[in-house]
Design a protein around this nucleic acid. Sequence first.
DNA 1: TGCTCAATGTGAGCAGTGCTCTCGGTTCAG
DNA 2: CTGAACCGAGAGCACTGCTCACATTGAGCA
Lengths: 244, 244
Amino acid sequence: MPDLDDSAPRTARQIARAELTKAITDAARRQLAEVGPSALSLRAVARELGMASSAVYRYVASRDELLTILIIDTYDAIGEAAEAADDRAIAAGADAGARWLAVCRAVRSWALAHPNEWALVYGSPVPGYQAPQDTVGPASRLGLAMARVVVDAAAGGELAAVASLPAPTLVDPGVLQAIGGLPDAPHEDLPERSMLLWIALVGAISFELFGHLHNVITDHAVGFDRQMAVAASSIGLTLPLDGA
Amino acid sequence: MPDLDDSAPRTARQIARAELTKAITDAARRQLAEVGPSALSLRAVARELGMASSAVYRYVASRDELLTILIIDTYDAIGEAAEAADDRAIAAGADAGARWLAVCRAVRSWALAHPNEWALVYGSPVPGYQAPQDTVGPASRLGLAMARVVVDAAAGGELAAVASLPAPTLVDPGVLQAIGGLPDAPHEDLPERSMLLWIALVGAISFELFGHLHNVITDHAVGFDRQMAVAASSIGLTLPLDGA
DNA sequence: TGCTCAATGTGAGCAGTGCTCTCGGTTCAG
DNA sequence: CTGAACCGAGAGCACTGCTCACATTGAGCA
C-alpha cells in the first residue's frame, strides 16, 4: 500500500490511482443502493469496472474497508442533509420549532430516498466489524446539527419549562464541549433530554424503513411529524404541525 | 415437504422429524448467538449435527426460512421477558411508573444478553427478505406488553396531564382494538404518544448495542433509565429513578 | 407377511463469494 | 538507464446457498 497522503497527486500514476479509487467507491455506492449492504460484492464491483477482482485489492484493502468508506460517506450525506435543511429554515426566518421539524423531515426524506445506505449506518453492524476512528467525526455530524437547533432554542428562550431529571448529567464531557458547554437555563439536563430527540428521530425512521410500523400507523409522514412533536415536547419545544 | 400440521406426531418417523427439526433450530440458535445473523451458515449447522448439508433442506426450505424461525423465537423471547417483568412488578405491588421501568430494564437486559438475536429482529432486515405473516403476532408482543402498562396507568388515573396533539389519531384501528379501544382520559392521543415509548425503548437499546452511544454517554445503564424517564414523561408517567 | 411408495440421507456439482499469490508488464525515481 | 515500486490478470483456496440423481429406510396397505 503506497501512501499518497500527500494532498495533491503529481504523477500520472497517482492521478490514475485516485481516479480508479473514486470509480471503485462510486460503483460500490451504486451497488449498495441497489442490493443493500450485505449483498455488496467486491467481485461485482470489479465486473462493473471491467477489471479482475484481484485488481480491486490494490485500491481497497478488503470488503470491510470499502464498507467503511461508504459508511463515512453516508454519515456525511445525512449530516449535510440536516445542516442544509436547518440553514434553509434559518434563512427563512424560522423559529426553533420550525427548524427542528425541518431537520427531522429532511433526514427522513433522505432516508426514504436511500434506504440501503441508512440501513448500512443505523442497522445492525456487520459482525466482527469495529468502527474505525475515521467514522466518529462524520457520525456525529447529525447529532451536532440537532444540537445546534437545541442550543439556539435554549439561548433564545424558546424552550418551555419541563420537569428536571435528578442527578448530574451523564453526557460525555467531549460531547458537551462540542455543543458549547452545559446550559443553565431552562434545564441543565438539556443535553440528556435532547438525546431522546436523537434516538426518536433515528428510531422512528428506522422503524418505518425496517417495516416495524407496518399495520401500526396509517399515515407514515404525518405520524412521523407527530412523533417528533411528542419527543420535542420533552425538552419544552413546540413544533408547528399542520393540524395545529 | 410433508405436511404434518396434525398436532401430535404419531409414527417414529414423525417423532424423529420433529426432534431433528428442533435440533436444527437449536444449533442455528447457538450459531446465531455466536456469529450473528449474517454469518449464520446452513452448512455449519449441518456440520454441527454431523449430517450432510443437503439433508438440512429436508427440514428447512432455505436459510431465509431458518432465519424466520429464529426471528419468531426472538420476538417471543423479548415479549416474554417484558411480560414476565411486568408480572413480577405487579405481584410486588408496583405502580405504573415502576412497572414501566421494570419492563424497560428487562428488555434491555435481555438485549444485552442476546445482542445478535436483537440485531436479527431490530437491525436492518436482510435484503429481499419479506417478513411472513407468522412474524406479526410475536412481533407485536412487546408492544402489547407495553400497552398494558400504559392502559392500566390511564385507567388508574396515574397519568399526569400533558399537552395534546392536534387532529385525530393515526394509529391503526386493529392496534387500537388490540389494546382495548381508544382511551378518553387524560389524553385521547395516548396511543400515539405511547408509540414514542416504544420507539425510545427499542431505539435506545439498539443505539447502545450498535455502538452509537460510544463516547456519547458515560454510564449506559443509568443513561438508559433516564432516557426512559424522559420518554415516559411525555405521556405524563413518572418513573421511580434511583437518584430521585 | 410382503410390496410399494414416500420420506430420508448422501455426495457430487453449480454458481457465487472474499481473499491470496504468482507472474508478467508498466511506470516512476535515482 | 536501470532497479524498484506499482499494477493488472489469472489461477486457486476455502467457503457459501442450493439442486439433483441416487441409495436407503420405514410406514402403511393388501
